[in-house]
Simulated assay, not measured.
Amino acid sequence: MHVLALVTQKGGSGKSTLATGLAVAAMGEGKRVALIEADPQGTISKWKERRTNPYPHVECLADPDEIERLIARLEAEGIWLTIIDTAATNNALAMRAIVETDFCLIPARPTPADIEAAIPTLIAIRRLGRRFAFVLNQTPPRGCRVSEAGASLNSLGCLALPYIGQRNDHQDALGLGLGVTEFAPAGKASEEIRSLWGWVSQQLTAGLSDHEQIVLKAVS
C-alpha cells in the first residue's frame, strides 16, 4: 500500500480539497483508496456526509498512537492508496503522519506567507528522511507571482507539476461531496488534478522492483 500525506502548517493552503481531488482521480483509474482525516476541522468528514458514493473510505484519526494500526488495517483490507489530510499545524499527529508516509505533498499558495510557512514543515520532513514535493496551489490565471513562487519553491526542493489553478470547480465539487473530476470531467481543474495525480503516482511507484509493481497492480 502507498501512503501519501498532505502537510503544511499554513491554514487555507487547500490540503483537504487536494486530498479529495487526488483520491477521486486515483479511483478513476480503478485504485482502491482510503482517506485519513487527521484534521479536527473535519472538512473531509463533512465532504463524505454529502457524498452518495460510498467510496473512498474515510477514517477519522485524533490519536497519534493509533495511526500505525490504522494504516496496517487499511493495508490488510486491500487498500492501494491511503491519503492523510493533516491539520494546519506541525502537531504530534502531523509529525506521526510524516513518519508513516511514503511521500509528502506540501501545498502552498503563491504568496510570501505561504512559502515562509512551508519551511518548518520542510525542515521536519527532511529531518525524518521522507520524500516530498511542493505543489503550487490556488494559482491566479496570470501575473509574474506564480513563476516567482514556483522558482522559490523549486529552490527549496522538488516541485510537483502541474500547478493547480484557482478555479471554482474545486469548491463546487467539495460542496457536493464530489471530486472535481466527477463534477466537471472535461474542465481545466479536472485536467490539472488528473495530471497532478499522474505525477504523484509516478513518485509513489518510483524505485519499486518489477515484482513489487506486479503485486501492487494485482491488488488495485
Rank of each mutant, 00 (worst) to 15 (best):
H2T: 01
V3T: 06
V3L: 06
L4C: 04
L4W: 06
A5F: 02
L6E: 01
T8N: 04
T8V: 02
T8E: 02
K10I: 06
G11T: 07
G14E: 06
A26W: 02
E29P: 04
V33M: 05
A34F: 09
A34N: 10
D39G: 04
D39H: 10
P40D: 08
Q41Y: 08
S45Y: 11
W47L: 02
R50F: 07
R51W: 07
N53Y: 04
P56Q: 08
P56V: 11
V58F: 01
L61H: 03
D63N: 01
P64C: 04
P64A: 04
D65I: 05
D65C: 03
E66I: 04
E66D: 11
I79Y: 10
L81W: 06
T82R: 01
T82M: 03
I83R: 05
I84D: 01
D85I: 08
D85Y: 11
A88I: 05
N90G: 08
N90S: 06
A92P: 00
M95T: 04
M95N: 03
R96V: 10
I98G: 01
E100F: 07
E100P: 00
T101F: 07
F103E: 02
F103Y: 14
C104A: 11
I106Y: 12
I106V: 14
P107I: 10
R109K: 03
P110M: 02
T111A: 03
T111M: 01
P112R: 07
P112F: 06
A113D: 11
D114V: 03
D114H: 03
I115M: 11
I115E: 04
A124S: 09
R126N: 11
R127W: 08
R127N: 10
G129Y: 01
G129L: 02
R130F: 00
R131I: 05
F132W: 04
F132V: 00
F134P: 03
L136E: 15
L136P: 12
N137W: 11
Q138A: 15
T139F: 10
G143R: 11
V146K: 04
V146T: 10
S147M: 14
E148T: 05
A149G: 11
L153S: 13
L153A: 14
S155E: 14
L156W: 15
G157Y: 15
C158V: 06
L159C: 05
L161A: 13
G165M: 04
R167L: 13
D169I: 13
H170F: 13
H170Q: 07
A173T: 12
L176Q: 14
L176K: 14
G177K: 12
T181I: 15
E182N: 02
A186L: 13
A186C: 06
K188M: 10
S190R: 13
S190Y: 15
E191M: 00
E191G: 00
E191C: 00
E192G: 08
S195H: 15
L196K: 13
W197Q: 10
V200Y: 15
V200F: 15
V200N: 14
V200A: 14
Q203D: 14
L204M: 07
L204I: 08
T205F: 13
L208M: 13
H211K: 09
V215Q: 08
L216A: 12
L216Q: 14
A218M: 12
V219K: 15
V219E: 15
